[in-house]
Design a protein around this nucleic acid. Structure first.
Lengths: 156, 156
DNA sequence: GAGGTTAGTTGCATATCGAAACCAACTTCC
DNA sequence: GGAAGTTGGTTTCGATATGCAACTAACCTC
């Protein structure tokens, strides 16, 4: 969680916010509806001081918001913001990878389409052609956010 | 990088392997074709002892393989295995998130569909309905890899 | 008013990190 | 043939982060 000297890489910037051992697990719990300090604490087994620290970093980063769920005694819960919910594909990607490569292809939990109960895949999607795009049809190029760099074969 | 007591969660298992500040950046460099110790070292600014450590963990995890690229002096380079290349969607997801939320929507690098040059989104895809599935239409259920757990609203 | 619940803070031992120095096996330059 | 450079590390050590346990505070229930 260092202030890295702003390299022009979105992966780097993302990891600066969520790239430690606990943060994404906290976000996962919030997705699952585990929203209170004590519940997250017991679910993850994270030390309380670290949980306090990580939650406040997440709130600072506007990934999570802290809202009261009762007065007297005043208690807060933690909820994902739109920015936080946008981490969904990242978590899904990790989950699918873990399923495939760390659990012998057997998912502990499956994600399915609520309409038809089909197990979901994660893919790149072209909004123009309206088709999924496999890795082989992906090109990369320097984007509007700072150029100057070579950015040749930037990904796969 | 602790030996976590095997919780039934693929996200957890994935983070046990790649969930620290450097590992995914190393993987990103390998995707980009930066494969040698000294090049990764200077590109990331990572301490050499940590790079040695992380590379050997990646090799142990079979995400990376170490192969000689010359004899006399014997030198090795690091290449992604199939398991490592399968991390592509995870990196793409993080890249898109960082573009959207940490770079003011301005991508330093864009991924585009080679057919039509449209910037790509990463989404869940239902192979039955042949449509992209937004987070709100995702359900989750216990999978074949170990059941017993409650696994109610597990994701979105 | 004793005990429980929730959400923390504080203090301290230990583990991990980061920077720099050092090392070894070569190669190239002069 | 000796000096300096390159690559890929290992070692050392002070700084930082982590994990555990104890403590606190505000309230509620019995």
């Amino acid at each position: 969680m260092l202030a890295t000297p702003s390299t022009d890489c979105s992966i780097q910037r993302t990891l600066d916010l969520i790239g430690d051992r606990w943060t994404l697990l906290i976000v996962r719990d919030l997705f699952r509806g585990v929203r209170r300090f004590s519940r997250i604490h017991e679910d993850l087994g994270i030390a309380k001081n670290l949980l306090t620290d990580r939650l406040s970093l997440l709130v600072d980063a506007e990934i999570v918001e802290r809202t009261p769920y009762q007065q007297r005694p005043l208690r807060h819960e933690y909820r994902l913001t739109a920015k936080g919910r946008a981490l969904s594909p990242t978590l899904v990607a990790m989950m699918r990878w873990g399923d495939e490569w760390c659990s012998g292809g057997q998912s502990p939990t499956e994600l399915v389409h609520d309409d038809c109960d089909t197990r979901l895949e994660l893919q790149c999607w072209c909004t123009t052609c309206n088709v999924p795009v496999p890795p082989t049809q992906i090109d990369s190029r320097p984007g509007p956010g700072r150029a100057l760099n070579t950015a040749k074969a930037a990904h796969g």
